[in-house]
């Protein structure tokens, strides 16, 4: 059976599809958040060196991973929009930006909360922290640039360029702890395996998955309202039951 994927690149069909998918993603995200955080805060043992403080990783690590991945996804959609001139891609990029910015902020904020008792400093200008801060600014810059141009198609193109250029920063964040001396520790989960305790790993991966599902649900909801706003003069929108009433 051949599925015509391009069918769903049209806002008309995607609007309905997104509406059907949102409850599934939202519900499973909520469920996994509860399970993951329960394992993280109740089942996982304390850490030998950090005691209870280490439990921030169950929020900090998934948020950081998401902030980087979402940026690449956003830049990917922005590039698709530039290359194929598809409206939906640009709308997706716009819809991802606020969630990405939120995760980048959570990452920096929880990191600071952990840094004060553990390192002895809220903030250090090391390569990992600085490049993550730049990531937050890239998200905010993307949002601001898009909002500052009135014509949505021009706004899409200008902010797409910014998103694509900024994607160079993501590998810098990821490899910063390898390339330079940083105060931030290296990766615990490596391709060669990990020394981490099993319950800690489980909690982290479940919360990570929950963050993914949450991000998808929120982005789909946001893209639906962007579609409604941008296509408000079309016939199909005006025929939607929720718009008519």
């Amino acid at each position: 059976m051949a599925i015509n994927w391009f069918k769903y690149s049209a806002p008309t069909t995607f609007y309905g599809l997104a509406g059907k998918l949102i409850p599934w993603f939202a519900f499973s995200a909520a469920l996994l958040f509860v399970i993951g955080l329960y394992i993280g805060f109740a089942v996982a043992p304390v850490d030998a060196q950090q005691g209870e403080f280490y439990r921030i990783i169950f929020i900090h690590v998934p948020a950081s991973i998401l902030s980087m991945f979402l940026y690449l996804v956003m830049a990917g959609y922005a590039a698709l929009g530039l290359i194929f001139n598809t409206r939906l891609s640009a709308m997706m990029a716009t819809a991802i930006a606020p969630t990405g910015a939120l995760f980048a902020f959570i990452s920096l904020w929880t990191g600071a909360l952990w840094g004060k008792p553990m390192w002895g400093a809220w903030w250090v200008w090391d390569a990992r922290l600085t490049s993550e801060l730049i990531l937050l600014f890239l998200y905010l810059g993307f949002i601001a640039l898009h909002a500052s141009i009135d014509d949505p198609r021009r706004a899409d193109r200008a902010s797409a360029l910014l998103a694509i250029v900024g994607s160079v920063n993501v590998p810098i964040i990821y490899f910063s702890v390898k390339w330079w001396n940083t105060l931030h520790q290296g990766s615990t989960i490596k391709y060669t395996g990990t020394s981490m305790h099993v319950a800690m790993q489980q909690a982290m991966f479940i919360v990570l998955l929950a963050c993914w599902l949450y991000a998808i649900a929120v982005v789909l909801a946001r893209v639906r309202s962007i579609i409604l706003e941008r296509e408000r003069n079309t016939v199909w929108i005006n025929e939607l039951p929720e718009v008519r009433s």
Binding site: A48, Q49, Q50, M118, A121, M200
Partner: peptide, 18 residues
């Protein structure tokens, strides 16, 4: 003027550490 602790990437319960 300032001393910061640098944490390593190992997370394990106290028994495992012992």
């Amino acid at each position: 003027e300032e001393v910061l602790a640098k944490h390593d990437e190992n997370y394990m319960p106290p028994e495992a550490k012992d």
